[in-house]
């Protein structure tokens, strides 16, 4: 049944495009003004703050100190992190040095089928990013075995760590520079802010299904 439908549909489509070819216009490239590194940070920060993301620019060696400060202010019980990633290792190290008044570190230790109950109960998660997009304001997440997809979605607070050097001016630039077309993973997600909706009278409200807070730390090498 399925194969027959496939054949019929493709037959009609082939006939349509062969009998009456579609004329295709030349495509002009869109002009882009590449931003300087400081401009990229500023632009990304401004756009993301406009959709209620909390953005901090911090010296690379100090970021875990800032993370601790942010978390202490919120009085959380658990923080989901990814051991074995550069971000995860630094978190682990920082927690070992001074664990007081900090949320307990939890890792995504099992498949979702066995971890779901615990996952839906976690207060916050910290993840890495593979880059940012200045022009629209977004971070790029590239989840993998160590850093599963739901880390950035289920916990009410998501903290994303972004290297300043990995901010691109445009989305197109990011796709080209990293040759995405050759290596698309299971899932890539761009995130610009906390979950939001305007479905009731266009009144903007945050934290519908995903995180209620998105906190981005932009790490600058001094």
């Amino acid at each position: 049944m399925n194969d027959a439908s496939r054949a019929q549909i493709l037959k009609r489509l082939h006939a349509a495009t062969q009998q009456q070819p579609v004329d295709t216009p030349e495509m002009a490239d869109l002009p882009v003004e590449l931003l300087t590194p400081p401009q990229k940070i500023e632009t990304l920060k401004a756009h993301m703050e406009a959709v209620r993301t909390e953005v901090h620019v911090v010296a690379a060696r100090d970021w875990t100190k800032l993370l601790k400060k942010i978390l202490k202010k919120r009085d959380l019980k658990t923080l989901l992190y990814a051991p074995g990633t550069p971000v995860g290792s630094e978190v682990q190290k920082a927690w070992a040095e001074e664990p007081e008044r900090l949320p307990e570190l939890v890792s995504y230790k099992d498949n979702i089928e066995n971890f779901k109950e615990q996952l839906f109960d976690i207060d916050a998660a910290v993840t890495s990013t593979v880059g940012g997009i200045a022009e629209t304001g977004a971070v790029i997440l590239w989840p993998d075995e160590k850093e599963p997809r739901l880390m950035s979605l289920v916990p009410p607070i998501h903290i994303a760590i972004l290297q300043a050097a990995k901010i691109y001016t445009t989305f197109s630039e990011a796709i080209q520079a990293e040759d995405w077309a050759q290596k698309m993973p299971t899932n890539v997600v761009l995130i610009s802010g906390p979950s939001k909706t305007a479905d009731i009278e266009l009144t903007l409200a945050f934290g519908v299904h995903g995180p209620k807070e998105l906190i981005v730390l932009i790490l600058k090498d001094e």
Binding site: D110, N111, I112, P148, P185, T186, N187, V188, K196
Partner: peptide, 23 residues
Amino acid sequence: TGQLITTYVNMITSARKPGEKDG
């Protein structure tokens, strides 16, 4: 909606691969 970008742009290229924990 007059947005520069939505909150999420979700790009799915495959089902869960061996070793991956969710999806």
